[in-house]
Each structure stands twice: as C-alpha cells, then as structure tokens.
Amino acid sequence: MTRSLRLPSGLKLMNLLLGSWTGVVFAFLYIPILLLIVFSFNDSQLNLRWEGFTLDWYRALAEDTVLIDALKNTLIIAAITTAISVVIGTVGAWLLYRYTYPWRKLVNTLIFIPMAIPEIIMGISLLILFSMTMSLLESWQALEWMPQWYQELTIQRGFTTVIIAHVTFCFPFVLVAVQARLVGADASLEEAAMDLGATPLKAFWFVMVPYMLPAIISGALMAFTLSMDEIIISWFTAGPDSQTLPLKIFARVKKGLDPSLNAISTVFILATAGLVVLSEWIKRSSREVSKR
C-alpha cells in the first residue's frame, strides 16, 4: 500500500508513517468484522464466548426464509435509495454551484434538516404524513363522482414509503460530498466544452460528471451504507412485506443474537468482497488486453 503512494520524493519517512497509520486504521475497522466471521461458526446459541466449531448456523440460515427475505428487501431498498439519492444529490449540488437561486441559503439549510433531525422525529413525522395523506385520500374517495382510478388509490406502508424515507436522509450526504468537490472547480471547464460545440447536456455528462465522479462514488457509498444500516426510520415506515434485515436483527436481540445472524453478515461480506475483487480483476485484465 505504502509503495503505491504517489507522494513527492524525499518523503519516504512520511509515506511510511502515513501508510502504517492507514494500516492500523484498517485493522481497527476489520478486527470486529473478523471476529464476527469467526463467531458465525460458534457452537453456542447465546454467542457470547467461543464454545466450539460448528456449521449448524449456516444450515439454519439456509432454512431461515425470514432472514434471507429481509436481506433481499434491504438490498433492494438500499440500491434504489442510492440510485435516486445520487441523481438528486449530484444534480442538486451541480445546480447550486452553477446558478444563483433566490433563497439559496434557505434551500441550503433545508438540505441539512434531514441530517440534523433525530431519526425518531423524522420517522414519526413521515408516518404521520403518510397516514394523513391516506385519510385525506379516503375522505375524497367517499365522493362518488371521483374517477375509478382515484377510488382505487391507496397509500400503504411498503417499499415506496421506506424508499422515500431513506432517500430523504441519504441524498444530503451525496450533495455535501459533491459540493465539497466542486469548491474551486474551474468554471471555464464546462463553458469551454460548450464553446467547442457541446450541448449543455453533453458538457455536463462528459465534463462535469467525470470531474465529480470521485465524490459521486463516495456519496453513493455513504448513501448505500446508511440505507443498509438504518433501523428507526425503517421501523416507522416499512410495511409487513418490506421488513429489512436490521429490523429483523433488532427483533432478535431479546432472544439472543444467535450466530445465524453472524452467518448472514459473513455470507454478505464475503460475497461483496468477492464481487469487488472480481470486478477489479476484470478491469485489470481488460486493461491488459487493450494494451496489447
């Protein structure tokens, strides 16, 4: 890791220090994860200390449709949330940078509200909002002259409501990350592209997006992570068919967090790590092919 640093020459000591600090921090990040993986093989229901090796929890996991469904729901919700958040956050940051909107300060403050507000307040207020909208709908549905499609309209807690809630607290993270990247960005970049005949859309897509990309990636990673791990807001807004993994895990605390929960985390982490390595490998081999 240290060797690949592109730091100025004559700074070997600093490089070494930086590299080893990074190593220490990564160890800090991964020690609990390693432990979690090891304990997924623990022969103990309560899973507090090591009692012996077993694969039973992986067998139990294979039969545990509730957990598997919950993981599926979590991934669907996190993926859609990330996609919407990236679009809203990136476009929002770019527009706020490019144009001077009236009440810009107000908009900037509003963006931070979902971050600043405690999750429980946001959860309950969104649930109240959804149920108020529903009762409003229902009261008008009593009117007979309303069209058929309107009569059938209904708001139920489910994927849509969770995703709405998740996007609301995730997109500000993307926006702030992209905004930080745009500070001091060369304004002439985009204009130069347009002077050369690019349409505004093309200028945005081929000039601005690549420039913002590192921030977009980190924003997307943050949004995905936040959505994957959210409990309180999900508890209020999720319906019976959209229960997420954190909700199901939380529901099992009382029973004791048995190792099958470690097992599902392990399977997921290893699968992700595998995918990352695979995509790197594909990228690298395609690069080598193109070099030839």
């Binding site: 149920s131 009762s135 139920q156 229960q243």
Partner: peptide, 20 residues
C-alpha cells in the same frame, strides 16, 4: 404478516401515528 416492537410504548406510538 409480522411486524415487531420492543416495548408496549413503541406499539402505542405506531398505532397512534395511524395508517397501521
């Protein structure tokens, strides 16, 4: 369909917020 809560008061909060 099953949804869970961790205390009586949590249950009441969600019932009172409506739409459940």
């Amino acid at each position: 369909n099953v949804e869970n809560y961790a205390s009586n008061e949590e249950m009441m909060a969600k019932l009172q917020a409506g739409s459940s």
